[in-house]
Design a binder for these strands. Structure first.
Lengths: 229, 229
DNA sequence: AAAGTAATTATGCAAGCGTATAATTACCCG
DNA sequence: CGGGTAATTATACGCTTGCATAATTACTTT
């Protein structure tokens, strides 16, 4: 009289961790941090709550892992389209900015998620370090793209490191600011409006006409990345 | 045998509300939203928890009021130094940007507070509307300053509204982005570095050399506003 | 096929949460 | 000075939370 149907299935550790992280992200984006309780996360992942403690020694650890996942995903979604070779350095920069300011990187879900995490960087050391690392990573990628674009347009007058750093900080700020408002108030901006503003602004800051080039020569680079999420 | 010392004091309604709002802000900035419990807020304001329900019909209402207070305070602290008359329109714009990117507007407390609130604009309609209103208010002030500065430098070629709007959106984004990172990672930027980057960037976006003017002609306008908080 | 083991479930607990309601108490007014 | 009333305190309730611990159960190994 053995039950033919097992009551549960044993999954590989990484897969279960993944499912739990995704559940946490989904809940946080839908209901905020307060909605992401241990029980709710477990239910969404179709397991019982005890299992969470089996893979994460504390809830904070799970949340921290979810934060890392989300930020890396966003950086990846922004940088990947710009990594194609065979296009000019300026085009790579344009693609990077455009990807960061269009769906799926710029949308309500992503921004809400980020906002939920960012509020805990003051009290939680692990979160603060994660933020710093993610921020530097993104900014460094941007700085490299800016440098290459500048070198391409003026090969014999390389930008000084201090200026380059400041440009990267400024351009990162524009992108972040636009990204945030685009996610927070999506209905108040036209499609691609923020991406175009981003191109214009970064172009003005680094002294290269990014928008014109895009619209005239290689418009395909400004398309939104195919949904990988 | 009457006790000469009363057990509590009756305060005016607005004053008590104020104290409760300030307590909430202090707690949220120090411990995040989860730390701002009804009991903790009451204790910090030196009252018992029941009093909160007497002035706010729900905790959400108190949090919403705290959000409004904080945002208005920050806008005020940014705009007030720029409201002095007798200085050029460009100087007013410079002062606005500088105030927004130096203490006390740009600091960890302010940014953390903002982040804590912003995470709930998706789930809470009142918070979302408050965010929208605050954002528009700030951006409109900025747009007016930009317009005046442009008119001042080129009185016979007024900027078209569409361009002006985009400039305001872009400049607002730079300021927001810089402000955020300055508050999140204060130790990684030199004093006034972000303010200078902000001036440079806004100058580049709108096509006016803001930084040079500041450093040469009217440096007093770039001082941080006297602490009103 | 039986045993061992690690994944998973089941159950419980102490603490804290927001809210409701009733009991006090300070202050205003006649 | 003595009521009346609104501000304030006091107490309690039901619910949820994160976490711990013990009981099951599926899969591997021999």
């Amino acid at each position: 009289m053995t039950d033919p149907r097992p009551k549960f299935k044993r999954e590989p550790a990484t897969q279960r961790k993944d499912a739990l992280i995704e559940s946490a992200l989904a809940l946080i984006s839908e209901q905020g941090v307060t909605g992401a309780t241990v029980r709710a996360i477990a239910k969404r992942a179709d397991v019982t709550q005890g299992l969470i403690r089996h893979y994460f020694s504390t809830k904070e650890e799970l949340i921290s892992a979810a934060y890392e996942r989300h930020m890396n995903q966003m950086t990846e979604l922004t940088a990947a389209p710009a990594a194609q070779d065979g296009i000019s350095a300026t085009s790579r920069l344009v693609t990077f900015i455009t990807a960061g300011l269009t769906s799926p990187v710029m949308d309500t879900r992503s921004v809400t998620l980020w906002a939920s995490f960012i509020s805990s960087i003051r009290t939680d050391a692990a979160m603060r370090q994660m933020h710093q690392q993610t921020y530097y990573d993104f900014r460094n990628r941007l700085e490299i793209l800016i440098r290459d674009a500048l070198l391409e347009s003026a090969p014999h007058t390389p930008p000084c490191p201090k200026n380059l750093r400041q440009m990267a900080i400024a351009c990162n700020a524009v992108i972040d600011g636009l990204w945030m408002e685009g996610g927070a108030l999506p209905e108040t901006f036209d499609t691609d409006e923020l991406a175009q503003i981003g191109l214009k602004s970064v172009g003005a800051i680094i002294g290269l006409p990014l928008l014109d080039q895009t619209l005239t020569s290689t418009p395909t680079h400004t398309q939104t990345p195919k949904g990988q999420l």
